[in-house]
Design a protein around this nucleic acid. Structure first.
Ligand code: MN
Ligand code: MN
Ligand code: ZN
Ligand code: ZN
Lengths: 157, 157
DNA sequence: GCTCAATCTGGGAATCATTCTCATTTATGG
DNA sequence: CCATAAATGAGAATGATTCCCAGATTGAGC
């Protein structure tokens, strides 16, 4: 709290609708898409339209209260900035794991690199091949090699 | 090269179309969207259709040769993985600066955190408010306060 | 060379998350 | 209550990406 107000020069009081949105995000305990949020809020006592959900998500992001990351699929996921999480994602099957610790939490940008910016949040995602997909790709590759080798020529690999 | 082949278990030979795509990305010297690439390749001697561009971008990404990040606007930008760049972006106006050095280049994931994954690439982006937008937000905020304080409302300007 | 199946390609339709429009509702402040 | 401004949301518009599928290309086997 003290942390937040120290960082943000303009910390506008949130409207009740914005509080509702942020609270829904907190309650979820995981990143949610705009559509997810809309679905949840639509069921609430004070339903919120899709346009309003997106409007406020954008506003909250510009105020540094919400951050957004994109899955490889392109889906946008939102979370409160106070939750500092990162992931390791398979570029093939999309399986993702939450990392225990943020590797850049300490390591901040130097004053020179900041260029006068007021830092709000960051995104950091690692991508790789999960063990299963490594196996599958190896299998596929060796099948190709074997098929090619059977014939007569093909010194490629 | 040695670096790459050591990392990637399955490093399939790229098709000529895939080479063409990757080469276009390298030649560009900056991140390009799928649409950008399509526009460039359409003008070339061997035009490439939009569907093919996206197909190969996905494949190259799964092979760890291309990485992708998303602007706050949602636009997807592609670059060769050998280019390890990150940015500082204003959440308000969208202005972005390239960082000189990658803060996580050394700092790799621990074996435990890797969970057997074969690391391919990462994305790291910092977000904040640029000096201009900080000023603007402060100005907007103080106008609001002043208007409220006066309590004699004059909507003239 | 020629043939045929497998693979690749790309025009155009389909998808779908997000944004936009704008008529209506709600908050504000006397 | 009145007037004005701000907020809201239904539905249309947008636009990037994916899907579909018929035609083109490749290349292994003859
Ligand atoms: Mn972090
Ligand atoms: Mn890096
Ligand atoms: Zn996988
Ligand atoms: Zn800015």
């Amino acid at each position: 709290m003290a942390h937040r107000s120290a960082l943000v020069p303009v910390a506008p009081k949130l409207s009740s609708r914005q509080e509702q949105l942020l609270e829904a995000l907190r309650r979820a305990g995981r990143e949610l898409s705009g559509q997810d949020l809309h679905a949840r809020l639509r069921a609430s006592a004070t339903p919120m339209g899709l346009a309003t959900v997106y409007r406020h998500l954008r506003q909250l992001q510009q105020w540094g209260r919400v951050r957004c990351r994109h899955l490889p699929s392109g889906e946008a996921l939102f979370a409160p900035t106070e939750c500092d999480e990162h992931h390791l994602t398979c570029v093939d099957c999309g399986q993702t794991h939450r990392l225990e610790h943020c590797p850049v939490h300490a390591l901040e940008l130097s004053g020179e690199e900041l260029r006068g910016y007021l830092p709000l949040f960051h995104t950091l995602e690692f991508y790789g091949l999960c063990p299963d997909c490594q196996r599958r790709q190896r299998r596929t590759a060796s099948e190709a090699v074997e098929a090619a080798g059977q014939s007569a020529s093909l010194p490629s690999a």
